[in-house]
Design a protein around this nucleic acid. Structure first.
Length: 534
RNA sequence: GGCUCCUUCGUCUAGUGGUUAGGACUCGAGAUUUUCAUUCUCGCAACAGGAGUUCAAUUCUCCUAGGAGUCACCA
């Protein structure tokens, strides 16, 4: 498929300020952004706040923060301005009012004086008779005299589109091909309220033209809106953008559209729940509290808070409805921009898979250098109060050691908090009950071995993982036993846990002093428990 | 219900008029390993159904079924 020369690409993402950035919105924005960058065009952020009573700047901030964090930058819009400012619809009323006047003047729209209940009654009657509702236009003001008469009755007018009632609206969609809608299926949509404020379809079309938007790339739920928007644009004599309607992002394990309102339902999905719990665990430890409605895997802030990588998220989202070929999965930003195109977007919905997202995240995490991981992880330890702020050199080198020992065990930055035992005081170690019993209380031989090991361990001059390994190996050889006999007891004694990093590394990180204290304490507690058992 | 759309492993997807229908995630088994994780090897698993066109259909056409989106003085 050879793309025609596309020059002067201008695309936009137009969120309404809701206070959070939804994962599906991110994907739509990403596709727009990639398309712009691929073609050397402009990506514009426009704020669709025509109907917001709330504080727009408060509700917009999380959205912009989300994009900034993800590295999706906009060329025109809030904060950066641009040649078509303002980029807030709430500040563009005059432009919309002029457009309405123009539509009124040429008969593409009309003043409708029906009372809401009268209009509703017509609709209900149609529904009752199971026929398609078509407004009678009984209260349409055809002339100034009509208007005066209606107003004398105390009526107020909204402005409705006067849509054609025959024929087809045909257009080309870059994802879905030739589209055709019967005009008869359209309603006379309201474009301006009584108070003069304008509605979405009008503002959207007017602004897309004003901003010289070349391609409208948006979610499929807007497809049915397209004919009326085309009608507005044509009536206004505006040039039509090209349309590309993206399949929506579906719920995990279902083909329903992903929504922020169905958290309870998603929590019943095993994979979603795992991710959610993961995040909650981290949030709790760093003292971050937010309502589940704004802190969950559907909202982008969730990932930033627990230490995901923007590139991993983008890479995952890119592949939700788009692919390059049968094998390429890893896309750096440069590669995405280079390879992205509308022609390989899928038509069917793609469901959000928390496991696959996590898999991408783990992979990206592991690709970072040790120092990069260190910088990511440090803030979590600070927030959890496990290291002091500012971070001193001792902490840094210790955390570095931990990260080396951790290997690929951290899937995101917040996971460092799973290894608190390296930061707690020796007396604060809590033992997993089952492991403690199995490896120390009900394991006389192993406990005795541990006691015996104490001396050589205390006396060894070198306390590196390497030296400790040599020491332990020769120790078990002397005792004519296997490593397994000492490893588990020692791990539980030192960390309180049954599983964890390589044991020799654990010893080295803890240091001789801590190890001695912890071994002594564990033996003492185990012996007490053992004797009280008898 | 009207309109519009969608349908390849559980999930994301590749693909072709003739393929053992490919990859990734997940899952399972084995190997390695001091545990866990990693790593390695192997494996499970899909063309919604039915007609038609054709020597040949997962691929083209039609129908059916299922699923979805949307039907505001929201965006």
């Amino acid at each position: 498929m050879t793309a025609p020369e596309i020059s002067n690409v201008r695309v936009r993402f137009a969120p309404s300020p809701t206070g959070y950035l939804h994962i599906g919105g991110v994907r739509t924005a990403l596709f727009n952004w990639l398309f712009a960058r691929h073609h050397g065009g402009k990506f514009i952020l426009r704020v669709d706040d025509t109907d917001q009573a709330r504080n727009v700047s408060d509700a917009l901030q999380p959205i912009m923060d989300g994009f900034k964090w993800l590295g999706i930058d906009w060329d025109e819009g809030p904060e950066v301005g641009g040649p078509h400012a303002p980029y807030f619809q709430s500040q563009r009323s005059d432009i919309y009012a002029a457009a309405v006047e123009k539509l009124l003047a040429d008969g593409s729209a009309y003043k409708d004086y029906s009372r809401p209940e009268e209009f509703a009654a017509e609709r209900q009657a149609a529904e009752k008779e199971k026929r398609q509702f078509i407004y009678s236009r009984s209260w349409m003001a055809k002339t100034a005299a009509d208007a005066a008469r209606f107003e004398a009755e105390g009526r107020e007018a909204v402005v409705r589109l006067k849509l054609p009632r025959t024929g087809q609206c045909e257009f080309q969609d870059m994802v879905r091909g030739a589209m055709s809608f019967a005009w008869a299926g359209e309603q006379d949509h309201v474009i301006q309220r009584k108070d003069g404020s304008c509605l979405y379809h009008l503002t959207n079309v007017v602004d897309d033209a004003a901003f010289e938007i070349s391609h409208v790339i948006r979610a499929i739920e807007h497809l049915p809106n397209t004919p009326r928007q085309i009608f507005i644009a044509r009536s206004l004599g505006l040039e039509l953008p090209k349309y590309a309607h993206l399949p929506f992002v579906a719920e995990p394990g279902s083909s329903n559209k992903l929504s922020k309102r169905k958290l309870d339902k998603y929590l019943k999905n095993r994979d979603f729940k795992v991710l959610y719990d993961h995040g909650e665990r981290i949030a709790k430890q760093i003292g971050f509290s937010a309502a589940p409605e704004t802190f969950n895997p559907v909202i982008i802030d969730f990932y930033r808070e627990i230490g995901f990588l923007p590139d991993a998220i983008l890479n995952y989202l890119l592949l939700l409805g788009w692919s390059l070929d049968d094998h390429t999965e890893d896309f750096s930003r440069e590669a995405m921009i280079r390879d992205f195109g509308l022609d390989r977007i899928n038509k069917s919905p793609a469901s959000f898979d928390p496991q696959k997202l996590t898999a991408f995240q783990s992979r990206y995490m592991w690709r970072l250098t040790l120092d990069q991981r260190l910088e990511m992880v440090l803030p979590y330890l600070e927030k959890a109060g496990l290291i002091t702020t500012p971070v001193n050199e001792d902490s840094r080198s210790k955390v570095k050691q931990i990260l080396e020992a951790a290997n690929e065990r951290l899937s995101c930055a917040g996971d460092i908090l799973d290894y608190q035992e390296f930061f707690l005081t020796d007396e604060a170690i809590e033992y997993e009950e089952k492991a403690f019993r199995k490896r120390l209380v009900n394991a006389n031989t192993q406990r005795e071995l541990l006691k015996k090991l104490r001396k050589p361990l205390a006396e060894t001059p070198e306390y590196s993982a390497h030296a400790i390994e040599a020491l332990l190996r020769s120790f078990v050889e002397q005792e004519e036993t296997g490593l397994g006999m000492i490893v588990h007891a020692l791990r539980v004694a030192l960390t309180g846990k049954a599983v964890g990093f390589g044991l020799f590394e654990i010893l080295a990180i803890l240091g001789k002093q801590s190890c001695m204290t912890r071994i002594d304490r564990a033996i003492k507690l185990a012996e007490e428990a053992a004797s009280s058992n008898e």
